[in-house]
Simulated assay, not measured.
Amino acid sequence: MADSRTHSASRETGAWAANGYAMLILLIVLLVLTAARVLGFAGSDPGASEVLWFLSTIFIGPVLIVLIASGFYMIQPNQAAAIGLFGAYRGTDRNHGLRWVWPWMTKTKISVRANNVVSEKLKVNDLRGNPIEIAANVVWRVSDTAQALFDVDDYKAFVFVQIESAVRSIGSRYPYDDIEHQEVTLRSHHDQINAELRTELNARLVLAGITVDECGLTHLAYAPEIAGAMLRRQQAEAVISARKKLVEGAVSMVEMALTQLSEKNVVELDDERRAAMVSNLMVVLCGERDAQPVVNAGSLYQ
């Protein structure tokens, strides 16, 4: 036997509702007919039976007028109205303009426009345990009005809480940065991170009938308590990386120079002269200052 406490998801369906402009014309016709009947009766000399018939039927017009006048409601573009009857959901009317339903049916209006939310800056530990600050911008809208109204208590508060949870989850799932560019990081792989955040948000918000159209990180930085230290580390890593590239290029250039000198027989170099040339070229290519040439007037061995 199924547990009666199990949550059952609602599903949006179309509601019956009449065109409000047609009902407005009908209301005007009833007003004219009722007024004409009253004026016609007042200008005549009816008998007793006609008076009784008039009194017994005169209430029909006003009752119909009140019923029709009480059923009007307005829906703006990108707005919907959930129709209910004695606590039961009877469907959603998404047709904008002047609409009409029976007055004893409830009308709960809900916006289906796109909403833009920028989350607060959250402090999260990334994959390596470094505290970082992270925030995201999320564009969401109501796609199923029944779920938004009846499956969660407050769908807007639900969206804010789930955005915070998803941003925290993404922030702790990846490192902030990787100087060697071998990992997916929060700072360098924006498209992948944003796509994964959108997928996770849609999975979290499907319960409330919410769809996320677009999202992305708007703030990403190390927490203030480690920002200075991490900046120095990044600078040191950048210097090391630059030096590594510089040395690799210098070695390649020295190798090319020695190869061409040997192939073109420009000069015959023994091991000692080769070592001296390599040392000089490395100093020239890797030094931070311009090299100052020194003219040797004697022999290389003196």
Rank of each mutant, 00 (worst) to 15 (best):
W104R: 06
V112R: 02
L85S: 13
W102L: 15
G71H: 13
I60W: 11
F41A: 00
I83R: 00
I110L: 12
A82Y: 03
F54G: 00
E50T: 11
L55W: 08
V66C: 04
P103M: 09
Q76G: 15
P77T: 07
G84P: 06
A69C: 01
G40N: 15
A81W: 06
G87T: 04
L39R: 02
S56K: 08
A42M: 13
T92M: 01
I75S: 02
F54W: 14
W104M: 01
G87A: 05
L67I: 14
I110W: 00
L30N: 00
P77D: 08
R94M: 06
Q79C: 09
L64P: 06
F72S: 01
G61Q: 09
Q76L: 12
I65Q: 07
S70H: 10
T108R: 15
Y73T: 07
V101P: 03
P62A: 04
V112H: 00
K109G: 09
S44V: 08
L64K: 06
Y73W: 05
W100I: 10
A42G: 02
I58P: 00
I58K: 01
A48T: 12
V112D: 07
Y89K: 09
L85K: 08
S44F: 06
V112G: 10
W102C: 04
T57P: 10
T106F: 07
A81C: 03
L30T: 03
G91A: 05
V51L: 14
R94P: 06
S70I: 04
M74T: 07
S49V: 15
V63Q: 07
Q76N: 08
S111P: 06
G97M: 00
W100D: 05
A36K: 10
S56C: 10
N78V: 05
I28R: 01
P77N: 11
T92D: 07
L30Y: 06
